[in-house]
Design a protein around this nucleic acid. Structure first.
Length: 490
RNA sequence: CGGGGUGUAGCGUAGCCCGGUAUCGCGCCACAUUUGGGAUGUGGAGGUCGUAGGUUCGAAUCCUGCCACCCCGACCA
């Protein structure tokens, strides 16, 4: 297995080729820009799904499922939306193949669809077309629905996990009677995402709002969480949109209010995707491979036996069975790797590559001494500890690891967060250490675009916690009342 | 879609300039010795050299077309 995986910026592609593929996370399939998520990688996604889904249910949402195919005409109903997605749609035009007589299979031109179908790049249109039939009265509101699905965006350039042509995600689509309620929902779901990113993924995020330029196509306001990767580039890890009445107007979704007036419904949508796996990898991994925070790890503890004889193995088995039972009572997931086809050293390296937080190695020598070797993935340290009280010890260690991984990422972000007051300083930091750059901006799309052209940095967000502060735009010198966050982004 | 590059065994590659039927490493299989940090030895299996044509007695190698992939740009969760 290849070594030399590095955490330096210019080698992130190396991570994907060497770490992710070799680590059984995923590999490119023959299909353009798509990914195969291998079982271990998918187990990580399933953990994310399970935890997020629970949060959604706790906040009153239910799951539903809408069609993969969306009639083309739906897209033309919301002007900004169609403009945003038109250039990256997979389009279904025919429904049948035929043998052309020479044995070659070709598209049957006689089977042309009356109206083309778009493979969903996002589901606002088909969902709002459906909601029209569900909503008549204020008594039908709110509708709080989430969908776990795949979507397709025909990106010009793809990147494993970060921008694949097909990706898995969840998309929440809610309908409300008032603007205030919809905005509250938008903000509440952003908080759910931020809490998940920080407490589960151990990735600190900045909560903020997008500028007009970076806003979701069809939204009045886009909220986001922005994470910082180890190479100093920012990654949008989740978004929550206040859609106003745009989709209700486009799809004619009205309700009768308490006052008896006919009004358009207010909407939100919010989503996170398999991009979170990319965030996880790039935020925490090191030269030895993946580093998974315990709360997310599909396997939290791996136990490796070291033995020569069957008697030794039997003795170790008995101990491991007791330990496993104790850990399971504490809801800790355990893998006993007693394969006799690999040697211990190989197993150590393999589980480190897969990011398992804690490893217990136990051999004949330990059985004599009543000890085990306890190793933690995050610090790469190991110590010999007593078998007595081991389960409790491991439980505490898992907490400590979760905390340490977060703290490390937070320290990194803190040291890569720079306030600047001039364009020269801006460029210097950007080309130097990178990271988030907090500075004044005149609020115009034009300035934003010019800065992007000149430096490739974009406004990641206007932080929600930004305080009012008088200043001047670093680019134009025009007045500004608060700082925004710039960064180079994925 | 514009600019650059690469296609040789499951993976990574040498050979290409200067034509003579493919090199090495990893991995895989068997046996033996091993097992507390990615084992070692011996033997073995595996390749229409991306593809279609051309030049030639002979093409991985030279020429032409096509295809695929990678990197850089525009786009983006």
């Amino acid at each position: 297995m290849s070594k030399g995986i590095t955490s330096r910026a210019e080698d992130y592609s190396q991570w994907y080729n060497e770490l992710v593929i070799k680590a059984d996370l995923a590999e490119n399939s023959a299909v353009r820009g798509c990914m195969v998520i291998k079982p271990y990688g998918y187990a990580i996604w399933e953990r994310m799904q399970a935890i997020l889904d629970k949060r959604f249910k706790e906040t009153g949402h239910s799951n539903a499922y809408f069609p993969l195919f969306i009639p083309k005409s739906f897209f033309s109903k919301e002007a900004a939306h169609v403009e945003g997605f038109a250039t990256e749609c997979a389009v279904v035009t025919h429904y049948r193949l035929k043998n052309d007589g020479t044995g070659k299979i070709v598209v049957d031109e006689d089977a042309k669809l009356e109206e083309e179908l778009i493979v969903r790049p996002t589901s606002e249109t088909i969902i709002w077309n459906t909601y029209r039939g569900w909503i008549e009265s204020y008594r039908d509101l709110p509708i709080l629905v989430n969908q776990w699905a795949n979507v397709v965006r025909w990106e010009m350039r793809t990147r494993l996990f970060l921008r694949t042509a097909e990706f898995l995600w969840q998309e929440g689509h809610t309908a409300h009677a008032t603007s205030e309620e919809a905005i509250a929902e938008t903000e509440r779901m952003l908080d759910v995402y931020a809490e998940f990113a920080e407490n589960i993924l151990a990735v600190p995020v900045v909560r903020g709002r997008k500028t007009e330029n970076e806003r979701f196509a069809g939204a009045l306001d886009t909220y986001c969480i922005e994470a910082l990767m180890q190479d100093g580039k920012a990654l949008q890890a989740g978004t929550s949109h206040f859609l106003g009445q745009n989709f209700a107007k486009a799809f004619d979704v009205k309700f009768t209010s308490k006052e008896g007036k006919l009004e358009h419904v207010w909407a939100t949508s919010w989503g996170v995707s398999t991009r979170l796996m990319g965030a996880l990898i790039m935020a925490h991994s090191d030269d030895q491979g993946l580093v998974l925070p315990p709360k997310l790890a599909p396997i939290q503890v791996v136990i490796v036996p070291i033995f020569k004889t069957d008697e030794e193995k039997a003795q170790i088995d008995a101990f491991v069975n007791r330990l496993t039972d104790e850990l399971k009572v504490k809801d800790i997931s355990v893998k006993y790797d007693d394969r006799d086809t690999q040697r211990p050293g190989f197993k150590f390296a393999e589980w480190e590559l897969k990011g398992v937080p804690v490893r217990v190695a136990v051999g004949a020598r330990d059985m004599q001494n009543g000890t085990v070797e306890l190793a933690r993935r995050d610090t790469q340290t190991k110590e010999t500890v007593a078998q007595e009280g081991l389960a409790g010890n491991i439980e505490q260690l898992l907490h400590a690891i979760q905390e340490n991984i977060y703290q490390k990422a937070l320290d990194f972000r803190t040291s890569h967060f720079t306030e600047v007051n001039s364009y020269d300083e801006f460029k210097e930091v950007l080309e130097g250490k990178g990271g988030f750059i907090s500075c004044h901006w005149d609020g115009t799309t034009e300035t934003e675009k010019r800065v992007k052209e000149e430096t490739k940095a974009t406004i990641r967000c206007i932080p929600l916690d930004a305080k009012e502060e008088e200043g001047v735009c670093i680019f134009t010198g025009k007045p500004s009342s608060r700082r925004v966050l710039f960064a180079k982004a994925y």
